[in-house]
Structures are given as C-alpha cells and as structure tokens.
C-alpha cells in the first residue's frame, strides 16, 4: 500500500516537471499543428491527401525552421469549438487555423498571437432575389451563422449599433449551416469575406443566385497562435512567419534562393540565408533556418499565389506594405 502511494507521489512530481516546447518537438520528431478541418485556400487536404493552404504553409515553415524539413508536421484538424482546448491542453504546439487575433483571446485565454498571415473582415452573403443592396437594409432578416466565433458577436454588435433586429440560426458544422442557408432557411449567411468568397465559389449550387454585400463590419486579422509560458517557442513561430514576409520583400523565392545565397552581396540577404551572423543560433535553431523555410515552403507571396489566387482572391490589404498593403516584417537582423 505504502509503495503504491510512493509510486503515485513520484508520478505526480514527474508530471509537474516542465519541458520546453522545442525540446518536446525535437524529441517527437514532428511539429503538431492545429488546422481547419477543411477551408479551401487556408487548410484543406488536396486530392492526394496532402494538406495545402496558407495556414498549412505556416506549419510547414515552422517544421522547416526546426528540422530543416517542411514535411515533418503532424496535422490535427480542429473545429472552431475544439481549437482552443487543443492548444491549451498541449495537444498541438501551435494553432494555424484562420483564427482572429482579439484582445480577450490574447489576454484571457492564455495565448500569444504570433502575427497576422491574412487580413480579413466580416461580410454578408444574401439571396439575390431579395434585392438587398446594403447591410443597412437587413432589418428583420434571418441570418445563418456558426457559433463560438467572433462572427457571432460582431453580428449582434452591428445590428445593435444600427438599431436593427435579426433572427439568428446557429449551427456548429459548416456543412449543415450552409445547407440551411442554401435551402432558404436564412436570408443571409455571414462569415469572414474570405469564407464567403470561398463558399460561393466552391459550395453554392448556383453562384449567380447570391450576392456579397459591400459592407465589411469588422477587422479580422487571422494568424497563428501559441500558448503562454514558452517565450522561445513563441519567438520561433513568430519569426518563421516573418521570414516568409521578409523573403518576399527581399525578392527571395524558392526558385532563386540557392543562387542568391551563393552570389548576392546584399548584407540583408547574407544574414537572412545564414551566410553571415548567427541569427539562427539566437532562436536555438540551425543558422540556415530561414533559408530552409524559403527553399521548401516559399515566401509569403508565393504561398498566396499558389493557394488563394486560384480561388479569386486579390492581394488587397494582404500585399506588402511597400505595395500599399499591411504585410510588414520587423527587420531580420
């Protein structure tokens, strides 16, 4: 009996011992990355079962930085309701799942957002036959929405601010909520603009029957996040994303980086590829961490072109700052 008790005690103290995320990831041999269960352009398996999308590329960039091999990722698809628990409990090392960076999530849920990989905003899709031209005409409408999202709160705020009423139909699974909208149960479907474009293009029985209203009622900066308590890991995820943005600014692509690493005299490029300085060591990584990201995953612009351009997305706010967009990396030096 006594021995059993001692055993239990030993087990408890073992469980308390903290291990850094980077050590755990290295010991496991893969980065556990929480992704969407399937959103075209962001994270979705293709016809061969390979995960693709701009959120997936963040997971791959972190794996390239840590292991020098972008394929060492274990994807953990999570619904809107599971995602935060998965990260809090340590089931995933990072969440890269079109998640809005907001104050209460950052401060209240014990997370750190590591940056923004897509600037989005909430909009409305309406049946064309209703002849609605503006969101201000939606008083009394029935609106289909998914629960547990900032979308649901913005929706209520917008109608309160404009002194209008609405009836929500709240269904958890994207499939089911879209079925309800396309069956005519709702007049309106609301989510982020990116979601509306993606859904109208890929799920609507007849895309011409639906219009997306011009109003954008919220700021939705989507980005990856990690849990509190491991600043080193926070830095690694943060700078893996910034490396992709910085590479686009420096003109480094997956195709030209080998040659640039050899020939470029630009000190920024030399630091970036690890030919000079020891930036990688500061993160506890190989000095070629950023080189590996760009070589294997590509820069941010390449990722956008490959994943979002085919669905009809324009760069818009997601262009580099020097092209009039919001994408801006702090200097990598």
């Amino acid at each position: 009996m006594k021995r059993l008790f001692l055993l239990a005690l030993a087990f408890c103290s073992l469980a308390h011992a903290q291990q850094s995320t980077l050590d755990a990831v290295r010991a496991r041999g893969t980065v556990a990355c929480g992704t969407n269960t399937g959103l075209a352009g962001f994270s979705q398996p293709d016809s061969k079962g390979v995960w693709r999308g701009i959120d997936v590329d963040v997971c791959r960039a972190v794996a390239a930085a840590v292991f020098g091999d972008a394929s060492k990722v274990r994807y953990v698809p999570a619904t809107t309701q599971q995602r935060f628990t998965a990260l809090q409990s340590g089931e995933v090392d990072l969440l890269s799942r079109n998640t809005t960076w907001s104050f209460s999530r950052d401060a209240g849920l014990g997370f750190n957002f590591t940056g923004v990989n897509f600037y989005d905003g909430q909009g409305f899709m309406v049946w064309k036959k209703l002849n609605v031209k503006s969101a201000k005409q939606l008083n009394g409408a029935t609106i289909c929405v998914q629960p547990g999202t900032t979308t649901e709160l913005n929706l209520a705020d917008y109608f309160r601010a404009n002194r209008m009423t609405f009836k929500p139909v709240v269904i958890d699974k994207l499939e089911e909520v879209l079925n309800a909208y396309f069956a005519g149960r709702c007049d309106v479907f609301t989510t982020d603009m990116s979601g509306l474009v993606s859904v109208r293009g890929s799920r609507a029985p007849n895309a011409a029957e639906h219009v997306i209203l011009p109003e954008i009622i919220s700021k939705e900066p989507l980005g990856p996040l990690v849990r509190h308590g491991d600043d080193r890991w926070f830095d690694i995820v943060k700078w893996s994303l910034y490396a992709m943005i910085e590479a686009e600014e420096l003109g480094l692509t997956s195709r030209n980086i080998d040659e640039q690493a050899r020939t470029s005299k630009d000190p920024s490029v030399q630091r970036f590829v690890g030919a000079s300085g020891d930036l990688g060591k500061m993160l506890g990584l190989d000095n070629r961490w950023a080189f590996n990201i760009v070589k294997q995953v590509g820069n941010y612009g390449e990722s956008f072109e490959a994943n979002l351009k085919p669905l009809g997305f324009e760069r818009g706010q997601n262009a580099l700052w020097k092209d009039g967009g919001l994408m801006y990396s702090p200097p990598i030096r």
Binding site: F84, R105, G108, P147, G148, E152, L153
Partner: peptide, 8 residues
C-alpha cells in the same frame, strides 16, 4: 457551448 467558446 457558445458561452464556452466566447469565454474559453
């Protein structure tokens, strides 16, 4: 469920 998601 919605409350859980909004408050964490």
């Amino acid at each position: 469920n919605t409350a859980i998601n909004q408050t964490g």
